[in-house]
Design a protein around this nucleic acid. Structure first.
Length: 769
DNA sequence: TGATTGTTTGCTCCA
DNA sequence: CAAACAATCA
């Protein structure tokens, strides 16, 4: 098949550029996913590169799944030898560390590949407890989140607490440095990694362990990185380490869509690419296939106000299309009603259109949901309060983690008194102090304190009962199937009983969630996932993974909308302070990032783009409504592209304002028809969607299906697809054969040993039937 | 120790 | 109007 067909000249050039570094500057809607998938298919099919030798990194698990599927459809062959490894940076790193991380223990004391992953809440928990130890107060010193963000930035720059100590001796910096130091110590003590660590420790591992580094270098001949503008420094180093042997790196990005500076994304990654790979080919994709000319021009005009920008202007062959509609609402409620109402009208005209409502902050979805429910419109909220953050789900998973990794003190203390079993604040504090004084984990501290009878009678009884229960649950945990483990936890801890005895609707819903978790675990077990796999998936789910293309109306943040497209797009809350957000008002560069976010949001639209703002907005129900100023970005949209409506417009409009009372009442009557991502019905789906099979090649050993033989080629004795036997590695499948005769170099996939490259005549291999 | 009640705060984006 | 926290009482 010709993978160049139907592409424009620049796209063709990018697909056909196989060897050597490639920087692809792909504007919004310029067909970059098409280029990436075609390029992968081209490399695998035309250059006979085994799929597992191609590594593609995307931003979300969802995008990874789609890319895998699209490549498969192009090649029409689902076998291993034609499946590239597609993954996010984070899940790639988790697999790297779990599979080959043992050597990291040399440089990170106490590390084992059975580490736990700490999420945001866990991190805050640690910082809270450090503040308590140091006598710091969130209000007078620094917010937990702010401290964590400083720590995270330092880690992304590969700086430790020592560097922070050196940076300043003022009380704030030095206290922060101490917090940082203890934070790192807590993670190491618990054998836990935070999200930054997943990347950082992977880099450390690859630097330290030459064998692993060369193993991965041998395997991955071609590397592709999507959304390159949003990678941070650690990810850059990872890329360098993985492509040390061959500079076959293709990165795809758009400086105008860089929206993760606050998470450490570094523009230098694009600039340095050309410096570090001087012979890099640079290709620009500037034809937009997605939006009407009006939408494209409006978005381009907005982002043109940024100074830190190389500058480019996308073009399209599409017609002008509808004007950009700007709506001025009386207040937030009126804005929501306008959106719901316009969606109805729009869908009556075009019933097949998909609609997205985009906003800057999650809390904005509330009012819009309410309005949509009222008009009986089904919708899907992506992200927000996602279901795995629910207390009951986290509790149960925390039990599993505590059983697998008893030294994870934060996790253990989370569940030590859930459900209530008489281990109160005082006892927990004693355990924490003992653990800190003796430099042991909380679990070890408990054991010792019981043995040495250091506790009051009541506390000792409660604690030793808990201790014994955990030990019993831990017995044989490696061998037992996941659903059985969960059920044992629910049963033995009394978690289920407590919920059952509580006859509130709240408890009932929790019970339902817990039940679904068990079902999801059963499904995962059937797919062959281990307990650790299941936990990893739960830890690495992204909000954006929850998107459902079938949903007619989706509500999501602008950040989550990255990479997506919709015929009809609403951007709500176009107000100063909300968007651009007040927290980004202090620096020009943060403001420019907000503007890029606006560009990203606008360019999601294919046909219709609505932007709205409210003259008065209250931050939460009951608060005073504050007068707002329209976002500066609205003023940056050229007037001739805009059609205005709303409070000040001359055009007659529905008096939505008067309906407000009625709306509030009907919404109260629970006219709930919307399917939200958090609802109990979706939990099963949620987890089954997480069941992304581990990318082949790095995954745990698995049987390799015999790949189809390339049609029309004579069957070589050790040609692609042949099953062979190696004296050391056992049975394997030949993926590629380079060279002639018995000097040929074979790339072979062995079950349990991964990919190996062998010279035929030295390897002592036999054909197997 | 833990459940209940009262008080205060609320503020980004995310793997 | 929540959630998070503090204070109070059983």
């Amino acid at each position: 098949m010709d993978f160049l067909k139907g592409l424009n000249p620049q796209q063709k050039e990018a697909v056909a550029h196989v060897e050597g570094p490639l920087l692809l500057l792909a504007g919004a809607g310029s067909g970059k996913t098409r280029v990436i998938t075609h390029r992968i298919a081209h490399i695998i099919s035309e250059h006979h590169v085994p799929g597992p030798c191609v590594l593609a990194v995307t931003f979300t698990n969802k995008a990874a799944g789609e890319m895998r599927e699209r490549v498969q459809r192009l090649l029409g062959d689902p076998s291993t030898m034609h499946s590239p490894v597609v993954s996010t940076f984070h899940s790639f790193c988790v697999r790297l560390l779990r599979r080959d991380g043992k050597a990291l223990a040399d440089v990170r004391h106490g590390f084992t590949p059975r580490f736990n992953i700490y999420d945001n809440d866990d991190q805050i928990g640690i910082v809270k407890s450090i503040y308590r130890q140091l006598g710091l107060d969130e209000k007078t010193f620094m917010q937990y989140r702010a401290a964590l963000s400083r720590i995270s930035h330092a880690k992304n720059k590969d700086e430790g607490p020592e560097d922070m100590h050196k940076a300043g001796t003022d009380p704030i910096t030095s206290r922060l440095a101490v917090t940082f130091e203890r934070y790192e110590a807590a993670l190491r003590q618990a054998n836990a990694l935070d999200f930054d660590d997943l990347l950082l420790q992977s880099v450390r591992l690859l630097r330290h362990d030459g064998e692993t580094r060369s193993k991965y270098n041998r395997q991955f001949e071609f590397l592709m990185i999507d959304e390159y503008q949003d990678t941070n420094r650690t990810q850059y180093q990872l890329m360098r380490l993985l492509s040390e042997a061959r500079p076959n790196v293709c990165v795809v990005g758009d400086e105008d869509q860089s929206i993760y500076g606050w998470r450490g994304a570094d523009i230098r990654n694009i600039l340095d690419f050309e410096r570090d790979y001087p012979n890099a080919k640079v290709i620009r994709l500037e034809q937009n296939y997605r939006s009407t000319k009006n939408i494209l021009d409006a978005a381009s005009a907005v982002v043109a106000n940024n100074k830190q920008r190389k500058g480019k202007w996308l073009w399209t062959e599409h017609g002008a299309g509808d004007a950009i509609r700007v709506y001025e609402a009386m207040d937030g409620e009126n804005e929501a009603l306008f959106i719901a109402d316009t969606i109805e009208r729009s869908l009556r005209q075009e019933p097949k259109d998909r609609v997205a409502v985009l906003y800057r902050t999650n809390f904005q979805s509330r009012q819009i949901e309410e309005a949509l429910r009222r008009s009986n419109r089904k919708y899907l909220v992506v992200g927000g309060f996602s279901y795995y953050q629910r207390a009951e789900v986290k509790d149960i998973l925390a039990y599993v983690k505590a059983l697998l990794n008893p030294d994870d003190s934060i996790g253990l203390l989370r569940i030590v008194n859930i459900p209530a079993r008489g281990i109160g604040k005082t006892t927990i504090e004693q355990v924490e102090r003992f653990a800190a004084d003796n430099a042991v984990s909380a679990w070890a501290a408990m054991g010792q304190m019981i043995e040495e009878r250091l506790l009051s009678g009541r506390a000792e009884l409660a604690l030793s009962t808990f201790h014994r229960m955990m030990e019993e649950l831990r017995e044989g945990i490696q061998e037992r199937p996941l659903p059985a483990i969960l059920r044992a936890i629910l049963d033995r801890t009394g978690y289920q009983r407590v919920l059952e005895n509580d006859n509130t609707p709240e408890a009932e819903s929790r019970l339902g969630n817990v039940q679904e978790l068990v079902n999801a675990a059963a499904d995962a077990a059937e797919r062959g996932e281990t307990v650790a796999d299941f936990l990893d998936h739960a830890a690495l789910v992204a909000d954006a993974d929850g998107l459902d293309e079938q949903a007619q109306v989706s509500l999501l943040t602008m950040h989550n909308a990255k990479g997506l497209e919709f015929p009809v797009v609403f951007i709500a809350g176009m107000e100063e302070g909300l968007f651009p957000h007040s927290r980004s008002h202090n620096s020009e560069s943060e403001l420019e990032e907000e503007r890029r976010l606006c560009y990203v949001a606008m360019t999601r639209a294919e046909k219709k783009l609505h932007m709205s703002w409210a003259r008065y907005r209250r931050r939460y129900p009951g608060a005073a409504a504050e007068k707002s100023i329209p976002s500066r970005f609205l003023a940056e949209v050229p007037n001739q592209l805009v059609q205005r409506g709303g409070a000040k417009a001359a055009a007659p409009q529905v008096d939505l304002f008067a309906e407000r009372h009625e709306v509030r009442e009907s919404a109260k009557k629970n006219l709930y028809t919307g399917k939200t991502y958090n609802s109990v019905d979706n939990i099963k789906q949620y987890f089954s969607e997480r069941g992304v099979p581990a990318p082949r090649g790095i995954a745990a050993p698995q049987p390799v299906p015999p790949p189809a033989r390339p049609a029309g080629k004579p069957k070589a004795p050790f040609g692609p697809g042949a099953s062979i036997r190696h004296p050391r590695y056992g049975q394997g499948i030949v993926l590629r054969r380079e060279g002639e005769g018995d000097e040929a170099k074979l790339t072979v996939q062995f079950a349990g040993h991964g990919l190996k490259k062998l010279i035929q005549k030295y390897a002592g291999i036999k054909v197997e039937e």
